[in-house]
């Protein structure tokens, strides 16, 4: 399948520049709608090449403490699926080029209604979906409808996706492949550089799609190490932790929150951009 759309264009541009991309994850509506919007709108200028926007869920089974807490903060502040899509639409009005991928769990989407969700997401300017609890065995639920609606469905490949299983994992994947470098939850341990390089090489034997690597990347140095071997490095928990670090005891954001978070993204971007020079 020939790839079109913002995600494919962005990876093509990165390839032309001869560098890997930085994928940043933040949770939609964390710590509140307006603060999140300010962070989101500042991400491209700070050096995010692609943006993953987490859809809050009460029961995030694959996430570690940092992203769990972010989701609960967002829900407490009134996050709804509709509001998440509004964030994307507002962002898209100002930025036509940076891909936005929604990442979350299936139930809020199922509850919203798959067809309606895909139509609204597409209209808001969403480019792709990562839905943690939809393996290839459940492709009929959302993956196939998403592809038909022109929304990329980005699959997670993991250390347990062996050569026998990879074809099934990759079959309906589009946009890029997200390699989860460790078996575990978000924000936990990180894999060794050698293990990541080997895994990326193995994925590349099975697919022409770009490979982004995430889980456990916390510093510009780690991001740079991944950027040397993969097409993109994904950073989530470490960014979300910066949001948490800038909240007062009452949960109210401190004035430095937005510049501090974006400053950290700038450091990550510098790491990624300098990796292959």
């Amino acid at each position: 399948m020939s790839e079109t759309g913002r995600i494919a264009r962005r990876f093509a541009a990165l390839k032309a520049e001869g560098r890997a991309g930085l994928v940043t994850f933040i949770t939609a509506g964390d710590p509140d709608h307006e603060t999140c919007r300010a962070v989101l709108e500042g991400l491209p200028e700070a050096g995010a090449d692609l943006i993953e926007l987490g859809m809050p869920f009460t029961d995030p089974m694959a996430d570690g403490p940092a992203i769990q807490a972010a989701g609960l903060r967002a829900l407490k502040a009134g996050a709804k699926t509709k509001r998440v899509l509004e964030l994307v639409a507002d962002f898209r009005a100002k930025d036509q080029d940076t891909p936005v991928i929604l990442m979350g769990y299936y139930n809020p989407i199922y509850s919203y209604g798959v067809e309606r969700f895909l139509a609204d997401a597409k209209a808001a300017g969403v480019d792709g979906l990562i839905v943690v609890d939809l393996p290839p065995e459940e492709d009929e639920e959302l993956c196939i409808p998403a592809l038909k609606a022109g929304v990329n469905f980005v699959r997670l490949a993991t250390p347990t996706s062996d050569d026998a299983r990879l074809p099934a994992v990759l079959k309906n994947t589009s946009g890029f492949v997200y390699y989860v470098s460790v078996a575990g939850i978000t924000g936990a341990a990180s894999a060794s550089d050698a293990a990541v390089a080997e895994a990326v090489a193995r994925l590349k034997r099975h697919t022409d799609l770009p490979v982004a690597v995430g889980f456990g990347i916390k510093s510009p140095e780690q991001a740079a190490a991944v950027a040397r071997v993969a097409d993109a490095a994904v950073v989530g928990s470490a960014i979300v932790s910066r949001v948490a670090a800038n909240l007062g005891e009452d949960g109210v954001p401190k004035p430095r929150l937005v510049p501090d978070v974006l400053g950290f993204v700038r450091q990550l971007a510098a790491g990624v951009r300098g990796a292959r020079t």
């Binding site: 089974m61 694959a62 299936y106 943690v132 609890d133 939809l134 393996p135 290839p136 065995e137 459940e138 699959r155 997670l156 490949a157 993991t158 250390p159 347990t160 996706s161 062996d162 299983r165 994992v169 989860v180 078996a183 575990g184």
Partner: peptide
């Protein structure tokens, strides 16, 4: 064979767990 009772059931888990 996919673990469905009518529309219910299924295997809605993260990819890491699927092989297991």
């Amino acid at each position: 064979e996919h673990g469905h009772f009518g529309i219910y059931g299924g295997r809605f888990v993260a990819e890491t767990l699927m092989p297991l």
